[in-house]
Design a protein around this nucleic acid. Sequence first.
DNA 1: GACGCGACGGCAATGGGTTGCCATGTATTG
DNA 2: CAATACATGGCAACCCATTGCCGTCGCGTC
Lengths: 360, 360
Amino acid sequence: MPDHTRPPDKRVTIYDVANEADVSPSTVSRAFSRPSRVNSETAERVRQVAERLGYRTSPLARTLSTSRTHMIALVIADITNPVYAEIVRGAQEAATDGEYTTVLIDAQESDRLERVAIERTMSTVDGIVLASSRMSDSAIRMFAKQRPVVVLNRAIADVPCVVTDNPRGVRRAVEHLGELGHDHITYVAGPEASWPNGIRWRSLLEAGMELEIKVRQIGPFSPTIAGGERAAEELCARPATAVLAFNDQMAIGLIRGLGQRGVDIPGDVSIVGFDNIVAADIVTPGLTTVAAPLYAEGSAATRHLLTMIEGAPGHTGRPMVLPVRLVVRHSTAARNPSPGRARSPWVRQRPAPSPAPHLW
Amino acid sequence: MPDHTRPPDKRVTIYDVANEADVSPSTVSRAFSRPSRVNSETAERVRQVAERLGYRTSPLARTLSTSRTHMIALVIADITNPVYAEIVRGAQEAATDGEYTTVLIDAQESDRLERVAIERTMSTVDGIVLASSRMSDSAIRMFAKQRPVVVLNRAIADVPCVVTDNPRGVRRAVEHLGELGHDHITYVAGPEASWPNGIRWRSLLEAGMELEIKVRQIGPFSPTIAGGERAAEELCARPATAVLAFNDQMAIGLIRGLGQRGVDIPGDVSIVGFDNIVAADIVTPGLTTVAAPLYAEGSAATRHLLTMIEGAPGHTGRPMVLPVRLVVRHSTAARNPSPGRARSPWVRQRPAPSPAPHLW
DNA sequence: GACGCGACGGCAATGGGTTGCCATGTATTG
DNA sequence: CAATACATGGCAACCCATTGCCGTCGCGTC
């Protein structure tokens, strides 16, 4: 007789194992979830039987009684933005290490979409990482009341946060531009709902003050390549020699938009971005940018979330801040002495070439 | 007396509602999940009471009795590859429309990681979309036996598949290169475990046969920019005038790698990629590439999966094939008549510049 | 008036672990 | 040797909604 396993249409439960191993179901349960609570020999026997029967613990059933789903939600502002790829990786890794599964939510830059998606998912997850949330502080706090929440790239009182050192990043960028002779920097703003956008601008104000460099802001624009291209248009109306863009995608849009209008980069304008996405190394000229430890952001935030889920207080004091560094490439150069065209640095204005073929 | 809701530490269940509305729990349950099965007035009353008490149906408990989690897994080969962004979006949208939640799994180009992640998650989801799986056919079939599975970018007998029209895409690329005077095309291969890699090569063989263009293959290389750069090295040893790369990332790596070695693109070599990722429009020169309807891929696969979950047979006949188109940019040009340097088209070989600053 | 049928709603089992509490037996301590 | 402590394992309640099955009741029909 080959094997007398039970009818294959029925899944194996702790009761089956219990019968077979001659113990009670609770012992089987404990053998897996709290081995210390049961005699090691018994535990071993149970494990053997379970193995033989092909028993797999049902996470769903476990969930019902423990009300832990062992899932966390990772909410990102825009999956199309490559910055998030590494963040997601970092988060996944940390989650997997902790035996948690990650549900990814793409908010598509919409605070409404973000909110409804979270509402829909919240009851199914043990905690939430909000990466670059576009929601209001109060909305976030409301969620934080119902589930452990860690916020990434944003500082909110009373909610645990992980941020990068924006002030320092801006400072380094400004110093760099200052050393190149620029005495005026234009900030190309991203979404108003974006916290980094605000702090970058404020940091720029401050750094400008200290280093005696004038600053101004244009925007807001959408934090995409297209947004950067639109910013390029506007920039033409109010030329600048040095630009700090909210992020790399906008910076790349600027490079393209300005390039199409015959503006030389970095000859006429120096451009600095944020994030150091892969494409920053691909554009011509290579983009000088403030790099953040993306992977570390994702994993730090997630690890912190997991400790909160396990019951830790979730220290809400100062946000955890991660270091940044300036990556210098070729989109920044010494300020053009602009011989004789002080008022309007960009005199030549060749017609834009036919628009590039476009995406689906 | 302000309000006499039950102690706030306890969540509201159907039993609470049942008590309050003076019906049995089953009626409450039915009032929500099968309104037709209960008197409309009763249903309305129940709904009112539920509303007043702030009752929220617990998806977890529902899951246990229906054994439907209303979640699906979306497995992608590499979240770092921008192609997947749109696929994920399409899938999310379709899933959300069907009231399903998506669990994203990044396989990091590893078939082992892919398998263990799926094993870990399988019992928690109602179905799986496998986008560009790196697993073996048999592994996939095994999963398909346990849960509904739809495979994207790959054709496997007996498993529902969604693919893009690779043969046609390759054909168009070859025609394009042929028209430009190229009579020899080098295919730069991606991962051997990648199904599109295989079919693209076979399609190239076929198209070359018909159009009397010689073809050869080098590789495999990793399907990344770095992989393309390595391919560039190897390509230097065996020069070509026209290259078809497995995907855009490799094509971009080729452009950079060859460029650093002084090879002119498209003057000396024409390059065609696959996928039409955003960066294809950003490199210099713009990359000619075969574009696929990524969003549609994701949503089609997911919608099909959902119908299977709802009990549909999951037609496993021919795979569903989505159209592609060739996007011509500036990385392809008429074949250089190569005056006097027929044997070795790339004579000038300037020293590579210092390596670009690198990522974190 | 007897019978049949459909609408409505309740009972109780089900899904599969988890865990507080108690009982038993063995080991340690004074 | 009595008394207390600890290690083990079982009992049964619990998590919360779903659903097959049955009873009741009102209405229409022959």
